[in-house]
């Protein structure tokens, strides 16, 4: 047991997780994201009225409005003046292939679907202990203040498998809303999918690779096109 504890405490790589045949994910293109927050608002709209909702807002019209969101767009400044770049950085659940939030859940409310790799919360089983949020290095989970259960991005599971929506709308709300096409959606396990191709050809990377969570969502890096390239 001592050896086992030592291994556990030394941050042993998670024991060989089963690899799923299908893993749905988003690929975020930082090269074209303009930081318009359309993905944030469309996510909030769909998920407030869809099967995940309502996503509560507290003090919505007051001085300090706060509420549940599955997706945020952050902004960073990279480099030093005058060579600075503004990078808009959308951030939501990464649907890790080895999600640390799932095994810690005491009730089984948090789970990863074997059929498509989406990490979900069963709101009827969640006791709101917040342990899964502690166990997510990315801060992808938010406790809904009104319902007191843990919530997170569902990859719009109620859109993508919908029988009633037209086939072209069976995509996550954030992907539908993005005006620049910065959000790609698909199966990262299918080598011929657009997302796999983008990851392969454009140097897609995972966030915080040091924790071996194997995020399914990946990011395409910013490429600087200098003015010199454009001169004939």
């Amino acid at each position: 047991m001592i050896a086992w504890l030592r291994k556990l405490l030394q941050g042993e790589e998670p024991s060989a997780p089963e690899t799923l045949a299908k893993q749905l994910a988003l690929v975020i293109d930082l090269n074209v994201c303009v930081g318009c927050h359309a993905c944030v608002t469309s996510c909030k709209q769909w998920n407030s009225s869809g099967s995940a909702g309502p996503l509560a807002d507290v003090d919505a019209y007051g001085a300090s409005p706060t509420g549940t969101f599955f997706n945020r767009v952050q902004t960073y400044e990279a480099g030093s003046y005058p060579d600075t770049q503004t990078v808009h950085f959308p951030k939501s659940c990464l649907h890790c292939e080895d999600p640390p939030c799932v095994p810690v859940c005491p009730t089984g409310a948090s789970y990863k679907r074997a059929s498509d790799g989406i990490v979900l919360v069963d709101y009827d089983k969640c006791i709101g202990c917040k342990y899964c949020a502690w166990a997510c290095p990315y801060g992808a989970r938010e406790l809904d203040e009104a319902r007191q259960v843990m919530t997170k991005c569902t990859l719009c599971v109620d859109r993508i498998y919908s029988d009633t929506l037209p086939p072209e709308e069976r995509r996550p709300a954030c992907v539908m809303a993005c005006p620049t096409g910065a959000r790609l959606f698909g199966d990262v396990k299918d080598p011929h999918s657009a997302v796999s191709q983008a990851i392969r050809e454009r140097g897609g990377y995972a966030l915080m690779p040091e924790w071996q969570t194997r995020p399914a969502n990946q990011y395409l890096p910013r490429h600087v096109t200098s003015a010199a390239d454009e001169t004939p």
Binding site: A63, E77, A78, G79, E142, E145, Y219, P221
Partner: peptide, 27 residues
Amino acid sequence: KSNLQSATGMRTPQLKQMSMGMSAGAF
């Protein structure tokens, strides 16, 4: 083990957050 560079994948040492994506805090 983690830093802003590994968290965002932007490898430049001069990296500063300008906005968290919300104004009044969150969970």
